[in-house]
Write a protein that binds this DNA or RNA. Structure first.
Lengths: 225, 225
DNA sequence: CCGAAAAGTGTTGTATTTACACTTTATAAT
DNA sequence: ATTATAAAGTGTAAATACAACACTTTTCGG
């Protein structure tokens, strides 16, 4: 067998990425979903996705796809799983790798989102999605939840500076259960990498709440995010 | 755009699977590795891998590849990650999905393994592997370790019936640290799905050790493996 | 100056985890 | 028969982590 035949006797496939884009708003997790104004499956709901191109890595493809929709290029993203069943895309055979992304919901590019006919949907209100996208969301959510219990990834869903009340609401949304306020604050206080900025947020209460930020250097000192 | 063009304007890629095959022997985790007697990278060490074919799912491809080497077709396998960097295979562009498999090291097909020039290598003695296979092993090990702390997947590395001493040695190998015997047995005793068979193993001690088995029904009753 | 509404603050009991060492048993050797 | 051997098997107490719980403070608007 000549060396190049080693590869060429095998089939090739379309490779796609599909992105589960999480946001946090009004105390609930949200997903950025497309109501497809294009074929295939026009009119139905789906994740934002795209095909991997020559000259771009799988991770790069996922970043590109998310940036096309949100305009944001430095999001926290993680690969979830690759879906390779035969009939998963009824059009042609496509292997698709799911990534989740965490977005500060105040920051995305509204023009782009509108142009794609995309909408933020609160997680419990998620409509049925095309292909195996429902399963992708389920898997991504489970993975993101697990990661959030292990490392403070959730912070990527909040603005730079945040109050402890916001942070608690976020974790309640991620874990899907109420958290005791005093126990929560005790736990946060023990994390030296979540530090007071000195600022006070008065938009939500007369008294005002102390603002905190995530100190990446102090965290990386402990172990890798 | 005609509907078929939606797909055809995008490139296709070779898709492969690479399998991290774990065994347990003499108190240590082992890997089943190929010393390649074929191109490319002949003479070097690698994981067992293969290309995804038309008409088989990604999971099926992984099962086929492991069966080709071991003769075993009902192994515990899990997808780990998909590697899609540009230069990862220096020959052509290949996207590869890693799976780990757990093998009862007494059971594999020695003929097949010999024919592939494969060898069981104790984990600490793992040689340098081609391409990004070192990283795959690292990622698979981390994932398998995590899973083993959450559900009793490790049992797939032991024979049907096993002693508590074996089980403890297995978990010490997986976690890489010694475990207190009494605390370990207390924990196991609380798991009703690990049950005495009534048999006694006398190969390892004069006194003989009680044999146990994993009761899948009782376990699934609690939650999914 | 009073009401409202969110921010902030400690203690105690319960459950879980860890540390720790000797006895039992069957066989092989003498 | 006796003894030496080597692994199997067994319980308790201390330490730590986790969970439950309610009132006070602060500021501003009315």
């Amino acid at each position: 067998m000549p060396p190049e035949a080693y590869y060429s006797i095998h089939p090739k496939f379309h490779s796609a990425v599909d992105c589960i884009i999480f946001g946090f708003d009004e105390g609930e997790l949200s997903l950025l979903l497309l109501q497809r104004n294009f074929e295939p499956a026009k009119g139905q709901w789906s994740l934002m996705g795209g095909f991997v191109q020559e000259g771009e890595s799988l991770d790069d493809a996922a970043r590109r796809v998310v940036e096309e929709l949100t305009g944001l290029d430095d999001l926290y993203m993680r690969q979830v799983h690759t879906y390779g069943d035969l009939g998963r895309d009824p059009g042609e055979r496509v292997l698709s790798t799911a990534y989740y992304a965490l977005v500060d919901i105040k920051k995305y590019d509204r023009q782009l989102v509108k142009a794609h006919n995309a909408h933020w949907v609160k997680l419990p209100d998620t409509p049925h999605l095309i292909f195996d996208h429902d399963r992708m969301v389920k898997d991504a959510l489970r993975f993101m939840r697990y990661q959030a219990t292990v490392k403070p990834v959730g912070i990527n869903l909040l603005p730079e500076e945040f109050t402890l009340t916001q942070l608690q609401a976020l974790y309640e949304a991620i874990l899907g259960e109420p958290i005791d306020k005093r126990n929560f604050r005790k736990r946060i206080a023990a994390m030296d990498y979540i530090e007071k900025t000195g600022g006070i947020d008065k938009t939500l209460s007369r008294k005002g709440a102390a603002l905190y930020r995530f100190n990446r250097d102090k965290y990386d000192g402990n172990f890798k995010i």
